[in-house]
Design a protein around this nucleic acid. Structure first.
Lengths: 219, 219, 219, 219
DNA sequence: AATGAATGAGCTTTCATTCAT
DNA sequence: GATGAATGAAAGCTCATTCAT
């Protein structure tokens, strides 16, 4: 009862649940599948139990509430989707390598997020769908974004801006432009039109071009 | 049972509910407010009835199911947000006016959608939140987009592309880039950070600039 | 949300629930019967519904929780068993009537409580059984006792003590002696041995004698 | 299945659980504490296990059901509270000692029960609370009272009645008066107002006086 | 048209008990 | 003997929907 209830602590709680029993893994798999397909509120715990092949009580032995199960499902997605540990490394390299530039950063960054979305499509789908209804999870994601991803993006964008590669726009405004473009790519590719054929390399290149130069023809 | 169940017909159904009684208006207002605040699944019909000041039974006299009430709430938003009747007019003017250009189109278009989002924020919020869980409404919105908005955008973009103002990219790809940028502006402005102060003119100009020229500095 | 949560207010809430629908009466009857026979925790809401001949949901339409149903069942017992409005009148009469004495008071008082217990045996049984487990109801009963019954007993006992009919013992101590004797009579008669034959008049007289003179033989 | 299910046999069962292992002692202690604080139905076996520092399964190794655990907890209280072995000895002494009288008996008797209640408050509390809901335990306690305590009280009261110290009232009626007075003292002291300061000697004397002479002033 | 009491299926959650290790 | 994961029946409660008034 004495623990602080900060987003920081909530995150720790989320992560420490390793050492999963086999049944727990089954439950998580079933929950991900059903939450992604039908949404959190449309999925009953009894359905999850049935699909996981466990008794309903077993779910509640591991996750005290249905909501906690949702958090367990989303925790990795939240952490991994917003917190990118590779950027640190990238910027260091960039400083010491003459041909590293903004394009090259975007290429690495987008392909990395693309790969993550490809591997975690169901979790990402749940995250996008449910975020609106769970203020506590909104708080967590905002926190993680602000403390993990924003500082890194800030460092990179500042670096390239100082080198004259980017317009003289405030960093937050730059991020406000970039993020929807990248998310738009991922959402279209994995959520809205997952079954349509995609030329992924082309779409990624297009997105990078768009972020760098927009749609206008060179005069 | 004889009616075809095409998106076309569904749309007609949605719209024909005009001639609303005062109680119906109260119900719709209450539903919009609560769906937007708490989400469809977290809102009970009894809450709606209480806020609307009617008996619970009255809701079901006008809308046979809760879902139908949702559709009644969203129908105008779907129609008006995706179907823009002004474009036709714009393109005609553009053809006969020498100084109409892509920037000018984007300015009119974005400001028009911006005004709509400002006036219909709750409905737009509901639309974004619930779309994921109601496949039939997804079908409707896809249909409306394809038949109403896409052809108009296509016409405009083709026009400016032929005039050499736009890069030589396929129209669908262009739309795939533009839409997230515009939606990003609106979502950030009205959904994610509605209470923060915004310099709307500046943000709109920035968005137009971004769509036209991206983030890269002029060399 | 704004109402104070004093025992006083809780009592008001309890009482104002008049104008009961027929189903509500059925529910209360069924609840009294089952709570008295098997105890609150051993009685399920579905059992109550079945015995009352209503759907389970109907119970919760009238009483938001099972606990509130318990309170509705006990409210009258609490109010009427502890708060005796006749005492006021008795003391007034006593002052103006030379032959009113302590015995006469006890006779009226005990017979009155006896009649109440006879008419409300199930509720009294529930009250005695459940009091231990519901601190909020303990608070209510303590409050009612202190504000309603104690002042009246105090007045009466002080009156007779001053007239030299009672020993020179502190009033609270007197009450501590009297109450178990009277409760003992009632509990034995209606709870412990309800089916055995009882000579009620004799037992009441014996109890009065005991309270007045104890068990010792006149020397 | 061949054993008779008499109260007699049940008592034997209750008592034979001696030679307790350390874990068993821990379980009993935990159960007493929790049953007393929250009641039998509000205490889960997992809580008991946690407080006792054992696994949940361990409880059921020693006590086949939760109810049996309750019986194991209450058995000593039932036996020791109702069966008083000292009376036998008292009456023998009394017969041969001229100054032993009813007051002196009450003094020894009440102080003895008082000491027991002081040392076993939690068990006594559980006994009072749960008795109502477990008919089989009621049967046991009635049996023990009738076979152990009643005969002894009967012997003592008859003795003093024959010596002219007590009124000419039937022994059962005498017991019906005395018991609530003594229980009232103990319940008030240890259950209802355990934290308030008490002048125990004074209260015991008052109770003895009350049982002997009641509340009326000497003429 | 409007009401709101009544419904009952379905929900999340609890918990005494079992059993493989 | 001891463990604790697993069970599944049953609990309290919610809520969209119906229908007599």
């Amino acid at each position: 009862m004495n623990e602080e209830n900060t987003p920081e602590n909530k995150m720790k709680k989320m992560q420490q649940d390793k050492n999963l029993t086999p049944k727990q893994v089954d439950i998580l798999h079933a929950a991900i599948e059903l939450f992604a397909k039908k949404g959190y509120f449309n999925t009953s715990t009894s359905e999850i139990a049935k699909l996981a092949g466990v008794a309903e009580g077993t779910i509640f032995r591991h996750y005290r509430t249905k909501k906690e199960l949702l958090k367990a499902v989303l925790a990795p997605a939240i952490v991994d989707f917003t917190a990118t540990y590779f950027v640190e490394q990238f910027i260091e390299e960039a400083v010491h390598t003459s041909h590293k530039n903004m394009r090259s950063f975007l290429d690495v960054f987008i392909r990395n997020r693309f790969a993550f979305a490809a591997e975690n499509t169901p979790a990402v789908r749940i995250l996008l769908q449910e975020l609106a209804f769970h203020p506590d999870m909104q708080a967590i994601i905002k926190h993680v974004f602000k403390t993990k991803m924003y500082p890194q993006l800030n460092k990179v964008l500042t670096y390239f801006k100082e080198r004259g590669e980017l317009k003289d726009i405030a960093i937050p405004d730059m991020i406000r432009m970039m993020v929807p473009s990248i998310l738009g790519l991922l959402i279209n590719r994995f959520i809205l039109q997952p079954n349509q054929e995609h030329d992924d390399d082309m779409e990624i290149q297009q997105t990078i071009d768009f972020i760098m130069h927009g749609l206008a023809a060179d005069r």
